[in-house]
């Protein structure tokens, strides 16, 4: 192990091997250290940390910087929603179901309401306008949820600006939600049998304007990310 090398001489001391580095010798240094026993480090990425927006516990086995094994611990957000619903109306349950996946509340509500309508046998009696409004709200929700995903995904890779852009889009969609249903998030808008109330007057035009603005803004977002070398290197061909 201790071959004579003009760039990184090492000597054994009571504390272990001490390397004297004199410059230009990173490769030999690394290879000398690399011949020593590998260390497997077990790191606990606990339930609170900036990376996962939400709570997830990861126990990682690292070899250097590469993660070789991961074990997850979940259950930190168990709310007992199903048991709560047992003591409530079918309509009141919508307010609980909407908080199951809080980034896409309308999807939770619609899934639940479709199931309730199937049990009641009224799936064909839902007004067509209500079904169309449900789909409209779901697609808007998809946009807002994907904006969070893009923004926070970019944030994890170190890019802060796309997050601001993405949240700007999300705010526009949330304004539309507020006009239609009264709330920005967790609206309890879709109820068994239809929706809670019709779209306000003039909403069609506002939504068309919104779509136009969003289309333009998405082009900006895309240019921010797709042209970026770091983003492409971190995402292309991974996994």
């Amino acid at each position: 192990m201790t071959t004579f090398d003009p760039y990184a001489s090492s000597r054994e001391t009571t504390e272990g091997t001490v390397f004297s580095v004199t410059g230009g010798d990173w490769d030999s240094l690394v290879s000398e250290i690399g011949e020593s026993k590998e260390e497997r480090i077990i790191v606990n990425m606990g339930p609170q940390h900036p990376s996962t927006h939400g709570v997830l516990r990861l126990v990682l086995e690292l070899e250097g910087e590469t993660v070789t094994e991961v074990r997850t611990g979940i259950g930190y957000l168990h709310t007992g929603i199903e048991k709560n619903i047992e003591f409530r109306n079918w309509t009141q349950a919508v307010t609980f179901v909407t908080r199951m996946d809080y980034l896409s509340p309308i999807f939770n509500e619609t899934a639940y309401c479709l199931a309730v309508e199937k049990l009641l046998g009224i799936t064909n009696d839902i007004p067509e306008r209500a079904s169309v409004i449900r789909v409209l709200m779901m697609e808007l929700n998809r946009i807002s949820s994907h904006m969070v995903a893009l923004g926070t995904g970019a944030l994890e890779l170190g890019a802060m600006a796309p997050m601001f852009f993405a949240f700007r889009e999300r705010e526009m969609v949330l304004d539309a939600f507020e006009e239609i249903s009264g709330l920005r998030m967790n609206m309890a808008y879709v109820r068994p049998g239809g929706v809670s109330q019709d779209l306000p007057a003039g909403m069609n035009l506002k939504l068309r304007e919104l779509v136009k603005t969003l289309r333009k803004n998405f082009k900006d977002n895309a240019t921010l990310l797709i042209g970026n070398t770091i983003w492409m290197k971190r995402t292309e061909g991974i996994g």
């Binding site: 923004g151 949240f167 705010e171």
Partner: peptide, 20 residues
């Protein structure tokens, strides 16, 4: 300190990152 757990965390993120 980041302690966002559920739906309120998204509103906290909106406060922190939305330009509005």
């Amino acid at each position: 300190a980041t302690f966002g757990l559920a739906c309120c965390a998204i509103e906290m993120m909106a406060l922190g990152s939305a330009p509005k």
